[in-house]
Amino acid sequence: MELQVVDLGVARGGLPILQGVSFTLEAGQVLVLRGPNGIGKTTLLRAIAGLQPALSGHVSLDPEAVAYAAHADGLKSTLSVLENLTFWAQVYGTTDVAPALQAFALQNLADRPAQNLSAGQKRRLGLARLLVTGRPLWVLDEPTVSLDASAVTLFADAVRAHCARGGAALIATHIDLGLQSDLLDLTPFKATAMAQGDFDEAFL
């Protein structure tokens, strides 16, 4: 399992926002993406997860290796915690949801409908989904939003355990997770107006 990003450029709403992003991520590593709001962290992660095409450069990884978690948790409010998690486990062809529940301290909430959870509990459930995917590369967009300090510790532990099992994580976040991680600041990769390739440039 290795993620290799070479000279990647991405666009949002028809505008190029990042260019020339290159990095590699190996098994056992954590890479944290930094950068001011609007720099394009979310867009970059979506491109790596295969949800939108890159403007230039390329991403080399096995698409079957990625588990993606966005701002929205994708929870169904009328299903219980257990049902939500079991559904994703079945989609990814795994069966055991108990470790995921335990890792994010959700055992006591297992039968509660997702609509009755607090924001932080929902987030924990969304993150527990990562564990049932059984996939090695986690691509996470602001995973700690609305988590309290103890939940952040739970999350950091989960990432650490994941890396120990040979996984890797690419995380866009602003807070310090206390993890052994590399840091990539996206600010220098902001796209300049000149280097837009064939885009709407054709109309100028």
């Binding site: 028809g14 505008l15 796209a191 300049t192 107006a193 709407d200 440039e201 109309f203 100028l204």
Partner: peptide, 17 residues
Amino acid sequence: EIRARRVKALIARERMA
């Protein structure tokens, strides 16, 4: 239509600069 797109592209470039 092409002119309309050109206007949009110009506005976008202004915003980026």
